[in-house]
Design a protein around this nucleic acid. Structure first.
Lengths: 238, 238
DNA sequence: CTGCCGCTAATTGGATCCATGTCTGCCATG
DNA sequence: CATGGCAGACATGGATCCAATTAGCGGCAG
């Protein structure tokens, strides 16, 4: 949360998008925790810009649903209710199922290899991050994303990718990452389910691939919803 | 596009959202056509506010994908390419299929009645709007929306509703409305397909309801894509 | 006559200023 | 001693000001 001046920013695209991306990244990584207040002046100071672009960036995040903006009271990082998680993941399940089905007829052998590598990587890293002495345990999530992102990319539908992204961006990633690290059973299931999906895709079974994917995402959503349930019963604000 | 001062605006929620909604409405209704430039000063003048809230409103619409904002060159209403329409409607088809499936176990008898009435209403109005001497032919679309909105509402998943809405908001409504008015065959198909969906829902057949809905939305998307195809071959800018 | 160059006007984007609304803490009062 | 009201600080939201970039246009040279 310290000083973090923007080096080069006038690289063509709008400054606002840059700011929005940075704030989003902070929230996603857990650097700014859910429920935290976002003061415009502070953010502007951090980025070395005026409040104006920060305000517009916050608007963007608001429409994305990542933060709540109450008039004259400022913005807070949204704390999803467990039922919201389940709703969102039911939708995401359908979207990813479609992605998996579309991927079947478009995937290449090298893509399949990438999927297998990514899955193994994620598994190994999650275990490593759980061992005592791991410097920072938050960054195994990107490895997990590789799996889903690859399938989404292969499915070759930009609007589908965006719809999935919009849902994912509602929930900070570090939470899901922690689940993989801390919960042995969840990590194991995650790994095995990924394998089944890869197998189905490889053998060209669109029906199975989409069904497996749907079940997988629903399961992940259930885990995440559980986490938020447990969290809401604990009392803490920061 | 004339003067349109905002009456009461400090009704609690932010002015920016109000402005964004108004601009969106103008685009959706076709009042501001696709491809048109959106000058901040002009909009600010129309609404009787300064440029600041207009700018933030445009940001919101940008993240929604309704407009394109090029740095230092302003915003234009996005002109979807036909393939984008097909992509989007493939996604929407999946989402609405899910909505239909969920609706089956939750719908009430009165909801079903509402669906039938809405469908008949839309059919009649589309015909009426096509007759010579119809004052304004653009407003049969809301009647069509009632059908889909009802199913979405009954399906009782806020995130699903939002995902569908986000896709719909990418395409101005007056275009789809015109299709119903001008194309007899399309209007007839639309009516019949709605009927089949209602029947499937009423008899509790989730499988059929979702399949019918998927096919229906895909078909509508195809019609819309055709329209944009024909349009792009014609040369005009306004 | 055509193509290139520079200038000017217009428009966006960022910074600053000001008004409005909200929260905190103190103080008076029942 | 608790509660309600009041005042001040503080943060947001909108307006205004200023700089930067771009497009449009006219002149000039080849």
């Amino acid at each position: 949360m310290s000083e973090e001046t923007i080096g080069e920013l006038s690289s063509g695209h709008a400054l606002v998008d840059e700011i929005a991306a940075r704030i989003r990244a902070r929230i996603m990584s857990g650097d700014i925790p859910i429920g935290a207040q976002l003061r415009q002046a502070e953010l502007a100071n951090d980025f070395g810009v005026s409040r104006t672009p920060v305000r517009e960036a916050l608007r963007q995040l608001q429409t994305g649903g990542l933060i709540d903006v109450v008039p004259n009271r400022g913005a807070v990082v949204r704390v999803p209710a467990p039922w919201e998680v389940r709703e969102a993941y039911e939708v995401r399940a359908e979207l990813e199922a479609l992605a998996a089905a579309r991927a079947v007829s478009r995937i290449s052998q090298s893509d399949i290899q990438r999927l297998r590598v990514a899955n193994q990587d994620m598994y190994d890293r999650s275990i490593a991050a759980g061992r005592p002495g791991a410097e920072r345990a938050t960054n195994s999530r990107p490895e997990n994303d590789v799996f889903h992102d690859t399938i989404t990319t292969v499915s070759a539908n930009a609007r589908l990718a965006r719809a999935i992204e919009e849902i994912n961006e509602t929930f900070p990633r570090n939470v899901s990452a922690q689940l993989l690290v801390n919960d042995d059973r969840h990590r194991e299931e995650n790994y095995q389910e990924h394998l089944r999906i890869i197998d189905a895709i490889e053998r060209g079974d669109a029906e199975a691939a989409s069904a497996q994917m749907r079940a997988h995402v629903i399961g992940a959503g259930e885990q995440l919803a559980h986490w938020y349930e447990r969290r809401s019963s604990t009392v803490f604000t920061a």
